[in-house]
């Protein structure tokens, strides 16, 4: 506890860095994955390449990806852009499949009913398919939230500041309190962001009282 009280300002700063690295990839992967998932659910031709591609992408370990991305994009190795790009790719790898499953779970007769009642394809997507795909989509988004928050810490070993810095510093200087603080805060951030997702889901989908994980 003494360690924490002496280093509180550092920890706050790292917490802020951590949030700045976690939230953008979560939002970006959501925005990218929903249309791709809809495409995969609606078209046989796109389904296999999209799902295989994202599946293989997910297999690539995070640390090597942090190093490969700068070589391809020209970003600086330690820049936030590198971490955000890598984690957005991971988020998409999970969410495209999740979104495809979510849209596939919309009953065909509901889709036909929307068409029959005069919804355009655009209106049908926004007013019928997306809301009905919501619950399944939300449960994959929650997985992305938790794993993104955890993966941000890996960036610390290449020198990108986040709560993970508490692990690398603590390890090198032999301070267990630093590492423990990092673990607890990372889990807390994950739990809080996950809870926010659940609350947002409840507000957006009032017809579902319970949201399964």
């Amino acid at each position: 506890m003494t360690w924490l009280s002496q280093n509180l300002h550092i920890v706050w700063g790292l917490l802020a860095d951590h949030l700045l690295l976690s939230v953008p990839p979560i939002l970006l992967s959501l925005v990218i994955s929903v249309p791709l998932g809809r495409l995969a659910a609606g078209s046989r031709r796109w389904r296999t390449p999209l799902l295989t591609g994202t599946g293989l992408l997910y297999a690539i370990p995070s640390l090597p990806l942090f190093i490969i991305i700068p070589a391809i994009t020209g970003f600086a190795l330690r820049s936030p852009a590198t971490i955000i790009t890598a984690l957005t790719l991971y988020g998409c790898a999970l969410l495209v499949r999740g979104a495809a499953d979510a849209f596939a779970s919309v009953p065909e007769d509901v889709r036909l009913a929307a068409e029959a009642t005069g919804h355009s394809r655009w209106a049908s997507f926004w007013r019928v398919e997306l809301p009905l795909a919501g619950p399944v989509l939300l449960s994959s988004l929650r997985v992305v939230v938790v794993s993104t928050v955890s993966l941000v810490t890996v960036g610390a070993v290449i020198g990108t500041a986040s709560l993970g810095t508490l692990f690398t510093d603590g390890f090198q200087r032999g301070i267990e309190a630093s590492i423990l603080t990092g673990i607890v805060l990372t889990v807390v951030v994950a739990v809080v962001l996950d809870a926010l997702c659940v609350l947002a889901g409840r507000a957006a989908m009032p017809w579902r009282r319970t949201v399964s994980a």
Binding site: V146, V149, T153, V157, G164, L166, F167, F171, I183, T186
Partner: peptide
């Protein structure tokens, strides 16, 4: 939710 690197470093210490 458990950060891998945290687990590795704490066990390493």
């Amino acid at each position: 939710a458990l950060p891998t690197l945290g687990l590795l470093t704490i066990l390493g210490l």
